[in-house]
Amino acid sequence: MALKVDYLVRETGQNLRRNITLTVAAVLTIAVSLFLVGSGLMIRQGVQNAFQRWEGGIEFIIFMNPDATEEQVQSIEDELGSNPQIKDYTFVDQEETYDEFVELFSDQPNMVESVEAEDLPPSFRVIPTNTDADFVSELGKNFEASAGVRRVIFAADSIKQVQRVGAWISTGVLVMAIVLLTAASLLILNTIRMAMFARRNEIEIMKLVGATNSYIRIPFILEGLVHGLVGMVIAASLLFGGRAVLSDRVLDLPILENFVVTVNETWVTVLVLLLVAIVVGTVGSAIAVSRFLDV
């Protein structure tokens, strides 16, 4: 049986208006919890972006001159390959460096335009066998004097700390978000239950005259879905707004200079929120409907 759109819009709208206080409570709870989910994900992304070059135990990076010859690069590579104190290394050529650069600064087209791949230094990212600071610095400095090498930079302790703190914060925020999302589901469940109670006479008559179960239930499930989606839109606006404000301020701090979350990454986060909102909205109302609305 086809469900009529105007019927669904009218019934769902009526339900939402009738329980306006509970509706607002449910929507706000969802908005706040989804905002936290989004923030957690974005902090994680930001930390990852900021220290992308330092992932997986990389302790120092040897930057070559952009115009270093192939022989010079090859000799460094040979040296790295034959050194027993080096566990692993990767070579990042100019094209890859450029790709990373473009991704990182996708918000700033002027910056991207002003740079060409050949302006950027190719580099070796090195994972030594030992992470002891003295050992690493000794090892890294050996390369500084080699021909074609511009400079060697080390993963500072401060970077490692920020990475660790960032992980803590984003995990903490996500845990809080899960608690709040549970609360939001329960609020939706109760809101729908109130809506069904308010309409118990209509529901009784619907059953009496032979309305199908789905016809009776779908407006209530849609109500929960609307709670979720409105909350999601509020959370998404906060995330975009917050991102715009923070990217002006935070980037002045030197340690966070690459702490960037791109617009695209924000959209991906919002997409995750959309899925969570749909799940929370429909699960809450579906439970209410199946528990309190039997034939």
């Binding site: 049986m1 086809a2 469900l3 009529k4 019927y7 006479n201 209509e202 008559i205 619907m206 005259v209 032979g210 309305a211 199908t212 016809y215 009776i216």
Partner: peptide, 19 residues
């Protein structure tokens, strides 16, 4: 009967909800 619907709406309701 549904108190917030008039006579015609009360009767129409029975037809509407079965589509």
């Amino acid at each position: 009967l549904l108190p917030n619907k008039d006579v015609a709406e009360n009767v129409a309701f029975a037809l509407e909800v079965i589509g």
